[in-house]
């Protein structure tokens, strides 16, 4: 394996007077799956959103595949990236949201094609072929012509995953991808994510699904109060948590 896909160093982030990230350092190895868990408000989603710069950070550095996110280092000074450069960085990073955020005015297939056509400038014909392939991969080829409002939550989330994959990302970020789903729909989304992990995709997953973390995760990171409290192999950490706060948290979610 080469260097880590994601390198996070001493990241701090404030919302007003509240410091939500208080010095986070973390590596996601290429091809690895890192699961981030923690109580709500612990900063885990914010950390994920900083990686593709939906949020800016107040200090620290984040690199994805060797590229510093959001800035260019010239001499000993940082320069803000131009909007076009930021877009180029984001293209390589897929993001799946808790509330799916599919484009409601486009069908499932059009949602998957959108990034290819608009951002990558791929012709509609080629994009349609690639989109159909991806919908097949998430098991929704027969729903291509449906609008998001006509799909179940689990189906919408699978389309959202296909939409991100269409950009051929080197990294996928999952922000509580199953938290907005009815319990019986959770597994179909986790199955798609499991396949994705098995195919070698580098993934950062904020989740409450401890079963998924135990089975698929290479690393488990427990964040509380804006700092990493405990990390390690998910099977070992979940079997024998060392910190009282993680024990208390697991007692509530399991």
């Amino acid at each position: 394996m080469t260097g880590p896909m994601v390198k996070i160093r001493s990241v701090r982030k404030c919302f007003g007077s509240v410091e939500v990230l208080r010095g986070i350092s973390l590596d996601v190895p290429t091809g690895g799956v890192v699961c981030v868990v923690g109580p709500s408000g612990s900063g885990k989603s914010t950390l994920l959103r900083c990686v593709n710069r939906l949020e800016t950070i107040d200090s620290g550095r984040i690199w994805v595949d060797g590229d510093l996110i959001g800035y260019a280092e010239r001499g000993d000074r940082l320069h803000h990236l131009r909007p076009a450069q930021l877009c180029a960085q984001r293209q390589g990073i897929g993001m799946v949201f808790q509330r799916f955020h599919l484009f409601p005015h486009r069908t499932a297939l059009e949602n998957v094609m959108e990034g290819l056509v608009v951002v990558k400038g791929v012709s509609k014909g080629v994009a349609r072929g690639r989109g159909t392939e991806l919908l097949e991969r998430v098991g929704l080829a027969d729903r291509a012509g449906h609008y998001p409002a006509q799909l179940s939550g689990g189906q919408q989330q699978r389309v959202a995953i296909a939409r991100s994959l269409a950009m051929d990302p080197k990294l996928m970020l999952f922000d509580e991808p199953t938290s907005a789903l009815d319990p019986e729909l959770v597994q179909e989304v986790l199955a798609v994510m499991r396949d994705l992990a098995a195919s070698g995709m580098t993934m950062m997953v904020v989740t409450h699904e401890m079963g998924f973390a135990r089975e698929v995760g290479d690393d488990l990171v427990f964040i509380d109060g804006g700092v990493i409290v405990e990390r390690g192999n998910p099977r070992e950490v979940l079997a024998a948590p060392r910190h009282e706060r993680l024990r208390a948290f697991l007692g509530q979610v399991l």
């Binding site: 877009c87 984001r90 993001m95 955020h101 950009m167």
Partner: peptide, 12 residues
């Protein structure tokens, strides 16, 4: 969230 989803795809 619509704006964020579009930005995450790399749209200007």
């Amino acid at each position: 969230g619509q704006r964020e989803a579009a930005e995450a795809l790399g749209m200007s």
